[in-house]
């Protein structure tokens, strides 16, 4: 495992920690899109089907379990926790996320590395992850006061994607047969979705003003 990959996984983990900190400690999920969180839970459930079948490393297994447990518990908190769910900004979180699922599934049936159940589900999870941030970005645009933790959460998520691209570039030159078109194309699309957010995030940080996305 190279340094980019490790740094990518760590920023991904950090984003989850930041979000759990907000939800668990501050008991607030204001500015967080439940739709995006539901999509992530589905992404991890579909991708980690091989968890108990195919062992890669202890690191891999533990990280998978962490992402599965955290994504489902975040959804639980936002839907069921009696204090947290009251802070959910339901009226602004209106993205029709169900309409993302079917096209991703159709695409996975058409474009996959191998036409098997697990490979189709893997491709599905990759496509769905690429667009899962959209409800969150839409909600951010509609949120007047984006708090620091929410901004940091999205920033770390985006940073994770950038680092994964650097990891692929590194692997492409160091590993002889490392070509995964599906994850590369989907990963680049996913990263580009953050470009606008990154611009405003860095500007707000540079100018020391509160983060706000233009509608």
């Amino acid at each position: 495992m190279n340094a980019f990959r490790l740094a990518g996984d760590m920023t991904h983990l950090l984003s989850v920690v930041v979000l759990l900190l907000k939800i668990h400690t501050i008991k607030s999920c204001a500015g967080i899109s439940l739709k995006t969180q539901e999509l992530y839970a589905l992404v991890f459930a579909a991708r980690y089907l091989d968890l108990f079948i195919h062992f890669i490393s202890l690191y891999n297994t533990v990280m998978k379990l962490v992402f599965l447990a955290s994504s489902f518990s975040i959804v639980w908190y936002m839907r069921r926790h009696k204090i947290v769910r009251r802070t959910y900004d339901k009226d602004h979180d209106t993205f029709r996320h169900h309409f993302l699922v079917l096209p991703c599934l159709a695409l996975a049936l058409l474009i996959n590395e191998r036409f098997t159940f697990r490979e189709v589900m893997w491709a599905f999870s990759i496509y769905l992850e690429a667009v899962a941030i959209l409800p969150q970005l839409v909600l951010l645009q509609r949120t007047r006061n984006i708090d620091n933790l929410t901004g940091q959460y999205v920033f770390f998520l985006g940073a994770y994607r950038v680092l994964y691209i650097l990891n692929w570039i590194y692997r492409y030159f160091t590993e002889p047969h490392f070509v995964h078109w599906i994850s590369w194309v989907a990963g680049i699309v996913q990263t580009l979705l953050y470009a606008d957010f990154f611009y405003y995030y860095i500007m707000s940080w540079k100018n020391n003003v509160k983060l706000e996305l233009p509608a």
């Binding site: 990959r5 996984d9 991904h12 991708r47 091989d50 195919h54 890669i56 490393s57 891999n60 990280m63 998978k64 992402f67 590395e113 191998r114 490979e119 893997w122 994964y164 990891n167 994850s183």
Partner: peptide, 10 residues
Amino acid sequence: RSDTVEHDEL
């Protein structure tokens, strides 16, 4: 290529 695709990333 083998029968299983190696997905070693998260």
